[in-house]
């Protein structure tokens, strides 16, 4: 195992051994190692690479470095800038996993159930990749190509994730939530961007990759009262929104639930996320959501 102490060293190590696994928190990789599915012989730890830690603001964007942990996503002021991401992080495993697991790891594993992924999809995040040869930026929707597969090229690492930090309503919902003894079967992230006056929906666990729901988004955008910062929809319109979100899902049957239920549940979550959405006022304060 190599433990490079800078980004340059890390990129050199990755270039030298393009088949090596990167380890940050270890919450995914060590499971593979413990199950004997991977050998930790060629593992490169990013633990000591300062450039991959923490986050910062850059114009109207927030740059989340790859080794940002779930726990860090939940702390102010980041949780106020990106409340849906904080909510998603809160639903992750347990304090131990949240203290160790990172946004870069969540992206690299690219599990359909990855908790932050629907949020990144709804935020239209950009994944910044870097190699010894240079860097490139990829929209999150192109970064994750299928179940547990990404467009990361040999010798490349995830450097950071760029997300907009504009005035927006943000929600994240799961069936089921924590505190309710329910195994999560789907999740929905909603971003109502006040500047672009667009509602985006990211759907999790209902397809091989995190999905968007363009027709539902179009309807939600038209139903949102951008001046008051609240949704305005009849019961019938809400039902239509749920239906359109369900139609966007591409779920499968598995031991946790059937595709039919997932499709239904993702619609319910989308509708509820929309109903709860409240734009913060100019000072960033949000009215209380039910």
């Amino acid at each position: 195992m190599l433990v490079p102490a800078s980004l340059d060293e890390l990129l050199a190590s990755v270039a030298a051994d393009t088949r090596a696994d990167l380890i940050a928190g270890g919450t995914d990789l060590m499971v593979e190692v413990n199950f004997g599915r991977r050998s930790p012989e060629s593992v490169i730890s990013v633990a000591l690479v300062p450039e991959l830690k923490s986050w910062y603001r850059s114009g109207d964007e927030v740059i989340l470095n790859a080794a940002l942990t779930y726990s860090e996503m939940m702390r102010p002021p980041l949780c106020e800038l990106l409340p849906a991401l904080a909510q998603a992080a809160r639903t992750v495993g347990s304090p131990q996993i949240r203290n160790a697991g990172t946004i870069g790891g969540n992206l690299a594993t690219a599990s359909p159930a990855g908790d932050t992924l629907p949020v990144l999809a709804a935020l239209e995040a950009t994944v910044v990749l870097e190699s010894a040869e240079g860097g490139r930026a990829v929209p999150v929707g192109e970064f994750i190509v299928s179940v547990k597969r990404t467009s990361l090229a040999p010798g490349e690492i995830i450097r950071s994730v760029r997300v907009p930090a504009r005035r927006a309503a943000q929600e994240f919902l799961k069936v089921g939530t924590r505190n309710a003894m329910v195994i999560a079967v789907c999740s929905v992230a909603l971003v109502a961007d006040a500047e672009r006056r667009e509602v985006h929906l990211g759907l999790g666990s209902v397809g091989p990759v995190p999905l968007r729901a363009p027709r539902a988004e179009e309807l939600a955008t038209s139903l949102f009262d951008w001046d008051e910062g609240v949704p305005r929809a009849s019961e019938k319109e809400l039902a239509r929104l749920a239906e359109l979100a369900s139609e966007a899902a591409r779920p499968i049957d598995d031991h946790r639930s059937t595709a039919r239920y997932r499709r239904h549940a993702v619609g319910v979550c989308a509708r509820r996320a929309f109903e709860r959405a409240r734009l913060p006022d100019a000072t960033g304060r949000r009215s209380v959501t039910p």
């Binding site: 919450t27 499971v31 930790p40 730890s45 726990s71 131990q96 996993i97 203290n99």
Partner: peptide
């Protein structure tokens, strides 16, 4: 897999699962 927490320890004051940490 780190999920029982029986191996949880504090690293720099934060709780982590020692079976999913090298």
């Amino acid at each position: 897999t780190g999920e029982t927490g029986a191996a949880a320890v504090l690293v720099d004051g934060d709780l982590v699962s020692a079976e999913v940490m090298l």
